[in-house]
Measured scan of single mutants.
Amino acid sequence: MTEYKLVVVGAGGVGKSALTIQLIQNHFVDEYDPTIEDSYRKQVVIDGETCLLDILDTAGQEEYSAMRDQYMRTGEGFLCVFAINNTKSFEDIHHYREQIKRVKDSEDVPMVLVGNKCDLPSRTVDTKQAQDLARSYGIPFIETSAKTRQGVDDAFYTLVREIRKHKEKMSKDGKKKKKKSKTKCVIM
């Protein structure tokens, strides 16, 4: 069974824990209790493949930012979460993405942009803004509501699919490099 290491990042209060708990335990946590770091595991079937999701729910508070490099190193894919009623959390996505790329030393890291709290009427981040940002990053965008469960499975499952595509691409690139290195030079 394939294991996928997913990391949920975003500013404090955007609903990272609520999304994760909704996926794992099928219930909505409405009281806000700032996370330092929590880890969850769940076995699911995605596109006919049974897999184990190892999900790291991270601290959004700035005082825990020193811990970010460590979990970013171990993560295979990242859910970059903002709240649709919090423009600052949307603007912060850029910083999370840049930090992930720096730590992973790669421009090509599996990510999904997630606009959470889409059940709320007080939207300050337009869907088109988020779609445009995701398009500019070359990553999928999904709106979710941890409260109603809308888009929750889709967000995590899409990230797994992005990781699969990335692994497939990397193995193809690896095979191309191996083929090239088999060419021999004969000096007579």
Rank of each mutant, 00 (worst) to 15 (best):
T2C: 13
T2M: 09
E3R: 06
Y4M: 09
Y4R: 11
Y4T: 14
K5E: 09
K5M: 05
K5C: 05
L6K: 00
V7A: 09
V7R: 07
V8L: 10
V8N: 01
V8W: 03
V9M: 15
V9P: 02
V9L: 15
G10E: 01
G10L: 02
G10M: 00
G10V: 00
A11I: 11
A11H: 08
A11V: 10
A11C: 14
A11R: 06
A11M: 13
G12N: 09
G12A: 06
G12C: 13
G13S: 11
G13Y: 09
G13I: 14
G13C: 14
V14G: 11
V14L: 13
G15M: 00
G15N: 01
G15S: 00
G15L: 00
K16C: 05
K16R: 04
K16D: 00
K16W: 00
S17Y: 00
S17L: 00
A18F: 00
A18S: 09
A18T: 09
A18C: 08
A18I: 07
A18K: 10
L19C: 13
L19N: 13
L19A: 14
L19P: 01
T20C: 13
T20F: 08
T20S: 14
I21P: 01
Q22A: 07
Q22W: 06
Q22Y: 03
Q22P: 02
L23C: 15
L23Y: 14
L23K: 08
I24Q: 15
I24D: 12
I24R: 04
Q25W: 05
Q25P: 03
Q25A: 09
Q25V: 04
N26D: 07
N26T: 07
N26C: 14
N26S: 13
H27F: 12
F28E: 00
F28T: 02
V29I: 12
V29T: 13
V29W: 10
V29L: 13
D30G: 10
D30S: 12
D30L: 09
E31F: 06
E31T: 09
Y32I: 03
Y32N: 05
D33G: 06
D33I: 12
P34L: 07
P34E: 05
T35C: 15
T35K: 00
I36G: 02
I36C: 03
I36E: 02
D38E: 10
D38H: 04
S39T: 07
Y40I: 03
Y40H: 10
Y40G: 06
R41N: 08
K42G: 09
K42F: 07
K42A: 11
K42M: 15
K42I: 10
Q43T: 05
Q43K: 08
V44C: 11
V44M: 05
I46P: 04
I46A: 08
D47W: 03
G48R: 11
G48T: 11
E49H: 10
C51R: 06
C51M: 08
C51L: 06
L52F: 11
L52A: 09
L52S: 11
L53A: 08
L53V: 14
L53E: 08
L53N: 07
D54S: 04
D54N: 07
I55Q: 01
I55N: 10
I55V: 12
I55Y: 02
I55W: 02
L56G: 14
L56K: 03
L56P: 02
D57F: 01
D57Q: 02
D57P: 00
T58A: 10
A59H: 15
A59G: 15
A59D: 03
A59L: 15
Q61A: 14
E62G: 11
E62D: 14
E62F: 09
E62M: 15
E62T: 10
E63Q: 04
E63N: 07
Y64T: 15
Y64V: 15
Y64K: 04
Y64D: 14
Y64W: 15
Y64I: 15
Y64F: 15
Y64C: 15
Y64N: 15
